[in-house]
């Protein structure tokens, strides 16, 4: 088990390195000078002297590999460089905002599992019945509504028309825990609409598939009670694909919260990213992309470990 974890960790670290190098290369090798790009906002050709000065300040005039080594060693120390707009250390800003995004994604993931897994099992056990049809139709609809549409409509209906909740915003947990959680609920539930539907669907089809397996019939032949069969022989075996799918979606959510954070004014990492993209602040974009991608890789690593916990074959294989 330990050897398995170590091996997977090594692979993950390798992937992070590849991603970091790739981000660096893409930014630096793409035609167009970042300094020029930055200064040419508004469509006016920038002053060559100013561009040259900026290039010097950013180290863009150095050979590529020197820049690469500098950047990579900086990363090892947790130094992501300075923002081009206000010269604020990027690492600090990320450290401030990342927990908020993680909290949002985590809450959405947990609620989705709590909603999706039991409903998926219930629908599968009565496949073709009324409950199954209603739930499946709801899931189909939920999957088709883009997340920012859900968010915007939720703000329109719940906040503006019915005045049930506030339209968005953020209050630190330490200042007002109750209000913090209340504000968290709306964006989290907005994500749950889509994610919960995904969990439901995967769980449903996975349970249906497991129900057909020989070992379920063998357990029936031993006289095991239906409840025990579902618990021990069906749900546990059906969870493996759900783990994969949820992880994959949570990963894409790390970047995908952009829209939800935008709609609900949630000051997470994604809002920061949009701002950086708009300002073409490439060290910022690089830093954020790198952090999110690394988290994605980390998530995959954790999923592999979780697999090993669920499935003994992975552990020994």
């Amino acid at each position: 088990m330990l050897a398995f974890a170590a091996r997977r960790l090594l692979v993950s670290l390798g992937l992070v390195w590849v991603v970091a190098s790739l981000v660096f290369l893409v930014i630096h090798l793409i035609p167009g000078d970042p300094a020029e790009l930055l200064l040419s906002q508004g469509g006016i050709a920038p002053d060559p002297a100013a561009v040259e000065e900026l290039r010097e300040r950013l180290g863009l005039n150095l050979p590529l590999w020197t820049q690469y080594v500098t950047y990579m060693t900086g990363l090892l120390r947790g130094d992501f460089g300075l923002s081009l707009q206000d010269e604020h250390p990027i690492g600090e800003e990320i450290a401030l905002r990342l927990p908020r995004t993680l909290e949002l994604v985590g809450a959405a993931g947990v609620i989705s599992l709590i909603v999706g897994v039991p409903l998926g099992v219930a629908a599968a056990l009565r496949a073709g019945g009324t409950l199954d049809r209603v739930l499946s139709a709801c899931a189909g609809l939920a999957l088709s509504i883009p997340v920012f549409v859900v968010g915007t409509l939720a703000v329109l209906v719940l906040a503006q028309e019915l005045r049930l909740v506030s339209a968005g915003g953020y209050v630190p947990f330490a200042r007002d825990p109750g209000r913090h959680l209340a504000l968290l609920l709306m964006p989290a539930c907005t994500i749950v609409v889509g994610l919960g539907a995904v969990v439901f669907r995967v769980m449903r089809s996975s349970v249906l598939e497991v129900l057909e397996r020989d070992h379920v019939r063998a357990a029936q032949a031993r006289g095991a009670a239906p409840g025990a069969i579902i618990r021990r022989h069906v749900v546990r075996n059906a969870l493996t694909p759900v783990v994969t799918v949820v992880a994959l979606h949570l990963g894409s959510l790390l970047g995908g919260t952009v829209l939800v954070e935008f709609v609900f004014n949630w000051p997470g990492l994604s809002g920061y990213l949009v701002r950086s993209v708009e300002a073409r602040d490439y060290p910022e974009v690089m830093g954020i992309v790198l952090v999110i991608s690394s988290l994605f890789v980390l998530l995959n690593f954790l999923v592999d470990l979780l697999y090993a916990v669920i499935d003994p074959r992975v552990r020994h294989g």
Binding site: V26, I27, V277, Y282
Partner: peptide, 15 residues
């Protein structure tokens, strides 16, 4: 696939 999809799109838009 290591890049979350929206993130990758944003990266391209930046460039």
């Amino acid at each position: 696939l290591c890049f979350p999809p929206l993130l990758l799109a944003l990266l391209v838009v930046t460039l």
